[in-house]
Amino acid sequence: MSEDIIATLKENVIQGRKSLEDEGIDEDLTGTPGVVELTQSALDNNIPLDVIVTQGLTAGMEVVGEKFATKEYFIPDMLASAEAVGAAMDILKPLLDASNVETKGKFAIATVKGDIHDIGKNIVAILLRGAGYEVQDLGIDVPTEKIVEMVREEKPDYIGLSALLTTTMVNMGEVIEALKENGLRDKVKVLIGGAAVSDEYACEIGADAYCVDGFHAVKVLDAFHQAKA
């Protein structure tokens, strides 16, 4: 029974079905329980939280990530799955907070100073939340000082910087320099992403990694997380 619920939960994450009313990626699924209902029944059946999260939600998102990478899935598919997982996490959050189940780490994300692009940043935030990270979104056009301040006060394990413009990507380097000056650079891993940047640019400014997209960001963070453990 428990295994059935978890398998169905995972399948519905892959289908991008938040609730009963959603038709899903395959047609004709309307009326069957979606991720929200299945998460609730998993709780009602006393399935452990970590099983719901890792074997249901995260396992489903991993499949979504693979399908996105092979271009079977597109952005709307991925967003539907991520939203479904987000809704499930809203149900689980209070319980997770009260239990000893740890998140994989704290991740802060910002679009750097001068740049107001937020779509890519939001997708990365949604996917990392779905992958079990505690995500804090600092928003767009975020001044360097504010990012430094945040790293000092909140001590995130990772910070993601986004820039889409060749004119604003230089501000990513500025953030890294400011972290160094404040003695915070070794306290946090810095990941960068966005249309303007590249692996080479990450090297040039001394970032820890460049991420092509949100799923890549999940992989990179998971690798850092495992290296730490």
Binding site: F74, I75, P76, L79, I119, I123
Partner: peptide
């Protein structure tokens, strides 16, 4: 123009 894939 915001991508229709992100917000229909």
């Amino acid at each position: 123009v915001i991508p229709i894939s992100v917000d229909s």
